[in-house]
């Protein structure tokens, strides 16, 4: 055991962070698209998105992870088989990112939708009056103006994502919680390893909080303070 069990835990942490980052990015993409669909899409798009966000937020993450994990890998393999390719083993990393990203997407849809609605309507009308095409308006006006409203909710989602990676231990993906379980099972030092893993998760959360505070302060510069407004 060259790196020792501490190294195993750190590898697990690395995998957890990879999944959390990937899932948050995928969730942001889905969330942005979903928010625009909900706000500006046609009636069918809107209804389908409402079903998506409602169902994902009403079913436990653990159940969704199992369903999407099996359904997702099954679907890809069936599509590949139908196209005449042989079955592939989906990497745990890709499957985990897809599954958690799909769940995160539902939550970020709601966060981003709320943030876009919080933009003063005049700004968007002014952009339209200048004759901006929708893409340019999205890039120059909507996204930057919504950011201060969205960051607290999105930061919360990032923290949830780091903790939700632990659920992937149940489908056998090697991340921090599963690494801890293996280390503890072999060495029989259960308490120490679980406490160590707890400290690692906590460190990620506290460090994230620090960064989030900075980012939030920067994105809010020039805006009235929330405390004074109360």
């Amino acid at each position: 055991m060259a790196p020792g069990w501490g190294g195993t835990l750190l590898v697990g942490l690395l995998h957890s962070l990879e999944i959390a980052i990937g899932a948050t990015c995928l969730g942001l993409l889905i969330g942005t698209a979903g928010a625009f669909g909900k706000l500006y899409g046609g009636p069918v798009t809107r209804d389908l998105l409402a079903v998506y966000t409602t169902v994902v937020r009403a079913v436990p993450e653990l159940v969704l992870i199992l369903l999407l994990y099996y359904a997702g890998t099954d679907l890809i393999n069936q599509v590949l088989a139908a196209m005449g390719y042989s079955r592939v083993d989906i990497s745990g990393l890709a499957a985990g990112i897809f599954v958690l990203g799909f769940v995160q997407g539902a939550y970020s849809t709601e966060v981003i939708r709320g943030a876009i609605l919080a933009i003063p309507q005049g700004q968007i009308e002014a952009a339209r009056a200048y004759g901006m095409p929708p893409g340019l308006m999205l890039r120059r006006i909507t996204l930057p103006a919504m950011l201060p409203f969205a960051i607290p909710g999105l930061a919360n989602l990032w923290l949830i994502a780091t903790k939700d990676t632990a659920l992937l231990a149940v489908v056998g993906f090697f991340e921090l919680t599963l690494a801890t379980r293996q280390a503890a099972g072999v060495t029989k030092a259960y308490l120490i390893f679980y406490l160590a893993a707890g400290v690692l998760y906590l460190a990620v959360t506290l460090f994230s909080n620090l960064v989030i505070g900075r980012v939030e302060a920067r994105s809010r510069r020039g805006m009235p303070s929330v405390k004074e407004a109360r």
Partner: peptide
């Protein structure tokens, strides 16, 4: 509150069950 909110529930559960349960 910070510790509870900063660590996954699954880990807390296993810490109590396997960790304390073995002590």
């Amino acid at each position: 509150c910070t510790i509870i909110r900063g660590t996954p529930l699954l880990l807390q559960l296993w810490l109590l069950y396997y960790g304390l349960g073995s002590i």
